[in-house]
Amino acid sequence: MTDTSAAPVFQIQRVYLKEASLEQPNSPNILLQQEQPALDIQLGVAAEPLAEGVYEVTVTCTVTTKIKDKTLYLVEAKQAGIFEVRNLPQEQLGPILGIACPQIIYPYLRGNVADLIQRGGFPPVHLAEINFQGMYDQQLPREGEAAAAPAPTVQ
């Protein structure tokens, strides 16, 4: 008889919009401006354990649009997913949570951000595709530097 309890498990339990906000702090006066606004987009990924083998992964996006030094609008959104990940080697867990899970969540975030901006009365901003592998690889050296730092000596 084969032991299936050790088979790798990767399942999506739920994908949901955890948080979203739209601010237009300088409306309505700024809406009369004819200048092209400057756009700044920031993304972040986080993962945390919820239970044994169950993780919440979030992708956070902040879109800030300004004309000169005044904010036209600010959108903050956090899309999350709950994933069951079991029976994987420890070295595979990081890439699953930092690359595979965000790739699943991101299309939902893109749609929600575009919809929120459009509902605010602006042309939708379509977030570009993201290379989560590249983002993950950029974070590894920083985490490695912290791990490579000498441990305090206890005497």
Rank of each mutant, 00 (worst) to 15 (best):
Y16H: 12
Y16T: 04
Y16L: 05
L17F: 04
L17I: 06
L17P: 03
L17C: 11
L17H: 06
L17A: 05
K18Q: 07
K18P: 04
E19P: 06
A20Q: 14
A20G: 11
S21A: 07
S21R: 09
S21Y: 11
S21F: 11
S21H: 07
S21N: 11
L22S: 00
L22A: 01
L22I: 14
L22D: 01
L22H: 01
L22K: 01
E23G: 01
E23T: 02
E23K: 13
E23L: 10
E23A: 13
Q24I: 07
Q24L: 02
Q24C: 09
Q24R: 09
Q24G: 00
Q24D: 05
Q24F: 02
P25D: 01
P25T: 00
P25R: 10
P25Q: 06
N26W: 10
N26G: 03
N26L: 07
N26D: 03
N26Q: 11
N26I: 06
N26Y: 14
S27C: 02
S27V: 01
S27T: 06
S27R: 03
S27K: 04
S27P: 03
S27M: 07
S27D: 04
P28A: 02
P28D: 06
P28M: 04
P28C: 06
N29G: 09
N29P: 04
N29Y: 04
N29S: 14
N29T: 14
I30T: 00
I30G: 01
I30E: 07
I30Y: 00
L31M: 14
L31C: 04
L31W: 10
L31T: 11
L32P: 03
L32C: 06
L32R: 08
L32M: 09
L32K: 07
Q33L: 08
Q33A: 15
Q34R: 14
Q34T: 15
Q34P: 03
E35I: 00
E35A: 15
Q36D: 08
Q36K: 14
Q36L: 12
Q36Y: 01
P37E: 09
P37F: 13
P37D: 12
P37Y: 06
P37H: 07
P37Q: 08
A38I: 08
A38C: 05
A38W: 02
A38K: 15
L39K: 10
L39C: 02
D40R: 08
I41L: 02
I41S: 00
Q42I: 08
Q42Y: 04
Q42V: 11
Q42H: 13
Q42R: 15
Q42E: 08
Q42S: 12
L43T: 06
L43K: 09
L43Y: 13
L43W: 12
L43S: 15
L43V: 09
L43E: 06
G44N: 15
G44L: 13
G44D: 15
G44K: 13
G44I: 13
V45E: 08
V45W: 09
A46D: 14
A46V: 09
A46Q: 15
A46T: 15
A46G: 12
A47C: 10
A47D: 15
A47H: 11
A47T: 04
